[in-house]
Design a protein around this nucleic acid. Structure first.
Lengths: 215, 215
DNA sequence: AAGATGCCGAACCGTACGGTACGGTACGCA
DNA sequence: TGCGTACCGTACCGTACGGTTCGGCATCTT
């Protein structure tokens, strides 16, 4: 596993009290369980045994609460630096495969799905604020890891590509295809994950066919 | 262009009055403009110059209205049968490229985006009903066209693959990557489309590298 | 001419939500 | 002991929505 979920590390990172972190945790639970409709200020207060007054003091308003939930959750996912050992064709393939599996794991996580649904629902009425936040805090991390891996592969003369982000886009598409959207639309995430996991290997193969240096 | 938008053909296809089709049209307009929050029964009635009573008589309730909107919109997109002429490597590439462009066009359409956002928002609280409907009516059509094209390519010994739907998944991923999700999250659709359109050619090239029969 | 039908516009009802205000309580500090 | 602070629980307010009801009008049928 290359992504680690840390207990409440997200709280301190964002300058939040332990208590506030716990509240956000319950709020995330409510969101996962019942979607945006279940994320009412009264509901969060009841579930977290706190008062609405405190919610408004801490987070400003409902949107502030949601933003705090996103950054809090993003703070829990940390990417482990890839081992900087010498890269061979074999280890590169292994790293790519591990990346593919982790990517599928992250995307199919129920908290991730719930937050993406929330941000997408919000996107229509008020700009791309939450969407950008989610993109920035969530995908940026995992994208960085991929970029580092690809760049290392190129340095080791194992990969060839013009622009790293285009190559990453290709890799992402090969791995994910339309799985993410289907999960967001409500298809059973576990079943889809089971169906897509074996594809991870084929996706890596395809990517190496496209960008691997023949050797 | 291989996808045609027909005026109100969706109405007759779904057994709807001309008037009801017009109402759904206004409802779709409201949804595109202001997201789910703007899709209130009173708002639709006002925008369409009809009474709420008629809305409930015609569509049952709000969910029925939404379902009708989805099937109505799906009925407007028809895939044109690919010309059955002899397939050469050149024409196959052209067809694949046209498909890629059309796919990007469909996915970046504002009505499509709005309906997908709506279905995704709904997915969390009440099963995958709308999601399935959207998937069934919308993507099934375009998927069929792709499947036919791929199958024709295989018959002409220009493509090689085991399962057609897996190959389609690969093609889809190469074309779309994470563009759809980013648009759903609120990134400017026009800008993204502009960025991704040149990628369509590269995606087709990559797909042919993976599944094309060397000749 | 008279009833029936279909529809509009508006009023209405119950509910639920976001946000605020208030009384009460536990705890730290002088 | 007294005071401030932070918090809880609850009640409250305004608003907005889904859904129903009702009076009125126009068109069609017999």
């Amino acid at each position: 596993m290359h992504f680690v979920e840390q207990g409440r590390a997200g709280a301190a990172a964002a300058g939040l009290t332990e208590r506030q972190g716990a509240v956000l945790e319950r709020a995330l639970g409510l969101l996962v369980e019942g979607g945006e409709r279940a994320l009412t200020t009264a509901g969060v207060a009841r579930a977290a045994n706190c008062s609405k007054e405190s919610l408004y003091k801490w987070f400003g308003d409902r949107d502030g609460l949601i933003s705090a939930m996103i950054t809090y959750q993003a703070g829990k996912v940390r990417t482990v630096e890839a081992s900087a050992g010498a890269l061979t064709a074999e280890t590169l393939r292994k790293h790519l495969f591990a990346f593919a599996c982790d990517l599928i794991d992250v995307l199919s996580g129920d908290v991730s799905l719930a937050l993406n649904r929330l941000a997408i629902g919000q996107a229509s009425r008020e700009g791309a604020g939450l969407g950008r936040l989610l993109q920035e805090r969530g995908r940026r991390q995992i994208g960085k890891r991929a970029a580092a891996l690809l760049e290392a592969g190129r340095k080791a003369k194992l990969l060839a590509f013009d622009k790293a982000d285009e190559a990453y886009g290709t890799l992402y598409g090969l791995i994910v295809s339309d799985m993410h959207l289907r999960m967001l639309l409500g298809e059973d995430a576990a079943a889809l994950k089971k169906e897509f996991s074996p594809r991870a290997e084929k996706a890596v193969d395809a990517f190496l066919t496209l960008h691997g240096v023949k050797g």
